[in-house]
Design a protein around this nucleic acid. Structure first.
Lengths: 197, 197
DNA sequence: AACTAAGTGTACCGATCAGTAAGTATTGAT
DNA sequence: ATCAATACTTACTGATCGGTACACTTAGTT
């Protein structure tokens, strides 16, 4: 198999776009930073937007896999995993190269509703949401599982905390946004009658 | 006094930057959209970044004034105002030209910690935070006001909900993010022993 | 009438933008 | 050894970038 230039390009482009922004990063800068020739880039991707889409696909895979693998490493019960979500969030924030959520940032630069880049960003968030929802559905109350409606509502509320934490951490408004979100999450779980929280 | 071209420029530039992004909007596009000559622009602002800073200053003033005036119109008690924060948030989301938070987006494009634009964005968030904090400090529990530490912690949690709602609304992940945030806020207030919520 | 402040249009600067063309070097499989 | 795929270098396109130079108009003040 090929550990090809293409993958190498996408990986490096991810770093540059993440740190420098999408519009602000020119293809010539990518040539300089990756050492890959422009001809070669355009053989793999027809346009810059196509490259960005590939970068976002990689990031989606990377982040979701890493995130929920860590969650599973930290806890096995549904309740434990749900709380671990916020611990992993904080882990992410503490990484030295943390610069916010790539998808929030990309959707800030490509806001048009029918832009494929914008839509890929929303798709990522929906996938993250569904992964959290899956955990919430397994939670135990004193009277068994949550109703589907309550589970969805609770997940939406927890998701608000998560996204807010990402933004406020990136904007340096809050130093420990992950932990604050976790505390708030505990309150929300208790308010919904979750056992043993 | 002059209702001058300068103000006109900043107001129009705000709209264009908001809908189209900062880096993606060139000065020539601003000429086209505002009808103001480039010479004139550069007589008022030395650089594009200076113009952006002026735009953000205007936006900060506009948004904060509007937001908390609406909050005061909707309720007079501290508890009522705090809940009204999320109603006003939802009002904002329902405006047809809503395109997310200008400061979150600007800080996505200008991420460098020592960039004046980035710093003005964080400043706006801190001002918003302090305004909410001021309300929280007036809340009544069964045993009087909240301790300063609890008040700050609660405000941070509510702020997470607010920022999360902005992002998820902008990314069309949640259709009624303001109301969801409000429900979550109620739970957090109850969890902190606030009276009559 | 003379002066000033604030605005305009046009043309330009060098740099960079996304993307292409043409020709050459490197590589691995057969 | 040959062949084809892949990547390379260099140079280029036309458009646009942020920003400037210069000559002109307009309006208000004195």
């Amino acid at each position: 198999m090929r550990p090809s230039k293409r993958d190498e390009l996408v990986q490096e482009a991810l770093k540059v776009f993440y740190q420098n922004g999408f519009t602000a990063t020119g293809m010539d800068m990518l040539v300089k930073k990756t050492g890959i020739s422009k001809t070669s880039m355009y053989k793999h991707f027809r346009t810059k937007d196509d490259l960005i889409l590939a970068v976002l696909r990689l990031r989606d895979e990377q982040l979701r896999n890493w995130f929920f693998r860590r969650v599973e490493e930290l806890a096995s019960s549904p309740l434990g995993q749900l709380l671990a979500v916020f611990d992993v969030l904080e882990e992410w924030f503490q990484q030295p190269d943390f610069q916010g959520c790539m998808f929030i940032k990309a959707s800030s630069e490509f806001q048009c509703v029918d832009d494929p880049i914008y839509n890929q960003c929303t798709e990522h968030k929906k996938l993250m949401f569904n992964s959290v929802l899956k955990i919430v559905r397994e939670l135990e109350t004193d009277s068994g599982k949550l109703s589907p409606e309550i589970a969805e509502k609770l997940t939406r509320q927890l998701f608000l905390l998560k996204e807010g934490a990402i933004v406020l951490k990136h904007m340096r408004v809050s130093g420990s946004a992950g932990l604050e979100a976790k505390e708030a999450a505990v309150s929300l779980l208790q308010a919904n009658g979750i056992r043993n929280v």
